[in-house]
Design a binder for these strands. Structure first.
Lengths: 197, 197
DNA sequence: TGTGTTATGGACTTATCGTTCCATATTTAG
DNA sequence: CTAAATATGGAACGATAAGTCCATAACACA
């Protein structure tokens, strides 16, 4: 496939992609210029175009990468968690930490993308919907584990609960980004968990 | 104050502002160009700059206008509602209608603005935080009315419940914008209401 | 009617955007 | 050592953005 002939790349595409993702996550698509990307990724314009095809294709790869990382991270967290319920609690509480992150609260890249593009770009809207369903599926696994462990009533619809958790996460991250303090977020989280009983 | 001397305006500033707000709500700040605004508002560039000062000041006035309209609309809805609880249910269910709106699901202009600017523009972040608190205050009134009517337990913290409702609304609107269908939204709404019991 | 005041339309300016292109550098295969 | 292939750096391009400026139009008042 990839011919091993010719001059070799002077950068690691994966590292560059990660840097681009961080930029888009912090500033959104429109507020990130090519210049910003070139600096963050530490490569030349030609290399960016040759390797990633341009700004928009790069962005879509970043959203995909983010989705993978988050879904995979949640899956691993669930595997290690002492119980499904505890995992869900930890998942919601982790939003509190984001506010103290060095980047500040950046929200969820997928939902940020939905806000920026869902209305105008059908292809990106499709990516977003797929990402959301991936998050939902992992959380549904957590709900079902909690049900099997007796921490959530078995008769509840696990898929709906998972949809609810995705929606709640999105709301919480938006509140955090909009300046809500820790006390407010904690209160919202506590109420959110009530719906699981 | 406003001198009534000189050539009179050929447009109604309030109508123009409403048109600008609809544009910003539909497309966001960056995706709305001056050209878009001039067409939507039906006025000349000079008039826009003279009357509104430029794109950013116009945008902030639009966000303020939106906040006023929503807060006032909620207040009137609450006054007419048969009960506090019923008002809250109607408030959440109204998000379902937005998806069938001729504009499509546009989310909440205030939260869209938070997503686009909270990280980079402190002044706008301040406006956003104020708007959120105004929404919260109206909803807190609804919660307290429901408590006095025996539909929500009196011992619950009405302010926290109101914060929770704001966050839930924001999450729901984001899900709607991201393509969630009516069934999914209804399920989330039903779960959201459980937290009030 | 004339003067001061504000509004309007449109040309113009300046900056920045994403993208393309080409000459040059660096590698592998034969 | 040569030729083919790929990567890189930087100049140049076309488009579009927001914002400014000025000549002209339309009013109120005296």
């Amino acid at each position: 496939m990839a011919a091993n002939i010719g001059r070799p790349l002077e950068f690691d595409p994966d590292t560059a992609l990660e840097a681009a993702m961080q930029q888009f996550w912090s500033k959104g698509y429109e507020h990130t210029s090519m210049q910003d990307l070139l600096v963050a990724m530490n490569l030349s314009k030609s290399s960016l175009y040759q390797t990633f095809g341009g700004k928009q294709p790069l962005f879509r790869r970043c959203v995909y990468r983010y989705t993978d990382q988050v879904a995979q991270g949640l899956g691993q967290g669930l595997a290690k968690a002492p119980s499904g319920r505890r995992f869900i609690e930890g998942f919601l509480n982790s939003i509190l930490k984001e506010a103290q992150d060095r980047h500040g609260p950046r929200g969820c890249l997928v939902m940020n993308t939905a806000t920026e593009f869902a209305q105008s770009e059908p292809e990106i809207a499709h990516d977003v919907a797929q990402s959301i369903d991936r998050f939902r599926d992992v959380l549904q696994g957590a709900v079902e584990r909690a049900q099997s462990e007796g921490e959530i009533p078995r008769e509840r619809d696990s898929q709906m609960l998972a949809n609810y958790l995705v929606s709640s996460m999105s709301g919480l991250k938006a509140q955090s980004k909009a300046g809500a303090d820790a006390a407010r977020l904690k209160g919202i989280i506590a109420l959110t968990l009530k719906a699981l009983d």
